[in-house]
């Protein structure tokens, strides 16, 4: 299963290399609008005559960009603050906890809407909004893990041998955080890809970049289902579902591996 997930992710990474202007996608009006599927356009065309299949393929790059950046922001902020709070403790811990309480007091979907609105939509708006909403969970988990590790016997041993703070952190704490961070990275990634669709549907998503959210929102706006042309909705949904499922599966396997190893490394829960 894990191999399948990795293979699927590799395919997506390859698709993301497709150049943005492939097949004249960025030149609307070059073909007939709402053409049915044909050898020239396997899934038909959209309201301005762009190839639907091509749009879904080009959407891969947008999705990966939004997901990677959002997960990057969430992980950077969350892991840094969680590490700070868990490792240093004291006033740092209290300050980070306070910030997480405030941010998590606002339901995440609403905070996401407010932030996307403030950032004015667009790719930057979407990934920043998702990242700034999602760091809280990452920070909580990292903090808890770091606190657990700090009390672990092997860390005590390393400390007794005279290891300094930075060395301990780099050699003994960060490697243990890697699987946790990988799982969180995948989950925020998924969240960002899904959020882009919701934001596009609500009218504050990406404007011009080819994206699955835009395609789904357009499918609704132009009543694709009612007009008997489900291709756009179907393709955008399938492309997105493949990516989301692959990330989910991969995260689940990493998580299981972590749980399995957790018994053997002297870290009683």
């Amino acid at each position: 299963m894990r191999r399948l997930a990795v293979a699927l992710l590799a395919v997506y990474a390859l698709l993301a290399l497709a150049p943005a202007g492939l097949g004249g996608w960025d030149r609307p009006g070059s073909g007939p609008a709402f053409a049915p599927p044909s050898p020239a356009h396997w899934a038909g065309t959209d309201q301005v005559g762009r190839d639907v299949l091509l749009g879904a393929v080009l959407g891969v790059r947008t999705a990966l960009r939004v997901g990677l950046l959002a997960a990057g922001v969430a992980l950077l902020v969350g892991a840094a603050l969680g590490l700070l709070a868990g490792w240093r403790g004291g006033a740092w811990d209290r300050a980070v906890l306070l910030a997480t309480t405030w941010v998590s007091a606002v339901p995440s979907l609403l905070l996401l809407l407010v932030l996307a609105f403030l950032f004015g939509g667009g790719t930057t708006g979407v990934f920043l909004a998702v990242g700034l909403v999602s760091w809280v969970g990452v920070s909580r988990l990292v903090r808890a893990e770091v606190r657990r590790l700090r009390a672990a016997p092997f860390l005590e041993a390393a400390r007794a041998q005279g290891g300094g703070g930075f060395l301990l952190l780099r050699r003994h704490v960060l490697p243990h955080l890697a699987p946790l961070c990988a799982v969180q990275f995948a989950l925020v990634f998924v969240g960002a890809v899904k959020a882009e669709v919701v934001l596009s549907f609500l009218g504050i998503g990406l404007e011009s970049a080819p994206s699955w959210g835009r395609m789904i929102a357009d499918a609704w706006a132009f009543d694709d289902l009612g007009q008997g042309r489900p291709w756009r909705l179907l393709l955008a949904t399938l492309f997105m579902a493949g990516l989301v499922a692959a990330l989910h599966l991969w995260a689940e396997r990493v998580d299981e591996g972590r749980a399995a190893r957790g018994e053997g490394d002297g870290l009683a829960p």
Binding site: K194, I216, L233, T237, A241, V244, L249
Partner: peptide, 13 residues
Amino acid sequence: LALLSVSAVSALL
């Protein structure tokens, strides 16, 4: 897992 991977917007539509 399959249903979760499908965007809620698409599923609702």
